[in-house]
Design a protein around this nucleic acid. Sequence first.
DNA 1: GCAATATGGAC
DNA 2: GTCCAT
DNA 3: TTGC
Length: 560
Amino acid sequence: MAKRRAKGAASGGSERGGKRGKRSTATTSSTASTAPSAPSAASAASAASAPSAPLVAGSDGTWADVRVYVVPLRIGAVQGRVLRNRVAALGGAVHDFVSPTTNVIVANLDVSELIEWLRQTTWNESNTPQEEPRFHKLDYLVDSLKQQSPISPHDFRLHSDEEYVAQVKMAKYQQYRREHQRRADVSGTRTVALSVAGSDKMVSLEVSDELAKKRRKKARVLASREFFACQGAKATDPKGNNMLVSRQLNELADMYKAEGDQWREYTTRNAARRIAKLPFALKSGAEATKLPKIGKKLGAKIQEILDTGSLRKLENFKADDKVVALELFQSIWGVGAATARKWVHQRGWRTLRDVRDHADSLTTNQAIGLKYYHDIKSRIPRSEVMAIEARVREVATAVVPGVALTVCGSYRRGRLTCGDIDVLFTHPDDKVAVSAVSRVVPALHDAGLLTHDLTSDNRGDSYMGLCRLGPDSLHRRIDLKSFKQSEYGCALLYFSGSEHFCRSVRTWARRQGYSLSERALVRRFSRDTKSDLPIPGLFTEEAVFQALGLKYVPPEERDI
DNA sequence: GCAATATGGAC
DNA sequence: GTCCAT
DNA sequence: TTGC
Ligand SMILES: O=c1ccn([C@H]2C[C@H](O)[C@@H](COP(=O)(O)OP(=O)(O)OP(=O)(O)O)O2)c(=O)[nH]1
Ligand SMILES: [Mg+2]
């Protein structure tokens, strides 16, 4: 069955860095002698004597939390001094430089000039605001100072002001990407994990790795990890600025999937994910094409959505009964793009009834998928997963003493409902570990929990099938997999997903010269060894993250 | 022209 | 090798 | 569909 991907709510990441940008060396300074124009009549001078007014949206109406930097361009010395004194007199802080605590930046520039200023400035740890500052035009500060009663930025020329902020944010985002195209940090250490006798706990040690240290010299220019979805830590924009766009692109991806167009699906869905997490509203398709992996075609589609609220290409797909049927058929477990295409285009089928009427042309698994179509489609409440886990654990420990099992997948990521149950098994004895599933499966059948097999080879280390708690419960999809303890870190990382997270980690690994599978992390043929070199000791997920130079991400934050 | 995760079972 | 799955 |  083709699982429908998460709706526009997911966050995403681009795994391919943008082009390398030249770094400007210009530095910002409050004493910059660059103010080009003569002081015009300081419009702010007349702003005197007003009581407090808020400068930041949602502030408490005082200036206490306002820490402002005034860009010293197109602002005369006199006007600048007056503004700064005024803010200070009302209790706000005035910064001579942009600092980590600056939260308001005021500039008497148009957007392109401000973008240029951002570009010309070398941003580093000491001058990059920790929280996204608000950008405002000079008028904003002047008017805020002038007001008797408090005004919020949203009351003030809402449209142009928000537009200004959005454009600047995009420029800053791109600046950030450019600045972070840098050399990978090859740590020169690697992790060794030791299993502790009589326990399934393991200990990680970091040891010096002479090989890695040698490699440090040869480290090539690699993408920076913060641009990978698996390190993004960015959730969907809570304000839902671009919901309309991201939802429709995600639906378009569903249509491409229905047609079996894997790569259009992939790019479109990633675009939808990344747009969903932008912290500001897209204003045009052209603006969107500044994001990596959003090119001309997607830009035009986004523009159409912004203009008309809908996308003709998507509407056409949705109105096409062939496409609707393709999607329907692929939602049967065991039916993929090729089979659906055959049924629709060669046999003219359109409904589940059509499929049911030709049951003889189904594979064994498809027949099961069709019979339990609705059971399999419905999501499993977390509580039911826990009940199934308890039964599996009970049976498994009885038949394989000392076995350890972990329910992974969306359950481990903390989802309240799950599409299926994904269970990993291991055991301190490798021989027992790899045979765990094949020993447990017959016992689960005997216990009445397993009802249908979707894998027939029952000697393997992997099982797929249906299970149910009892005659009043729905049939649920369940996957069981066995791994050696030495593979368990990689196995947990794989089986816990999400799919997008998994692909992101593996793409990152490949960029670093590794290949990551559910069993192992291997260094791809290093000249010296002439063949692939498995990294030993990856008993835990932490060890795998560390070996890859990634910050550990708990399962709950992998739900991207 | 090619890669975009990596792997395994069924046929 | 293709299809389908995770 | 995008980017190299
Ligand atoms: O194409 C895929 C699909 C899945 N996986 C991994 C990640 C995923 O988390 C795990 C289990 O897959 P499943 O399909 O069960 O996804 P899930 O994350 O558990 O979500 P659901 O609630 O739909 O089961 O297998 C992949 O690597 N590639
Ligand atoms: Mg699952």
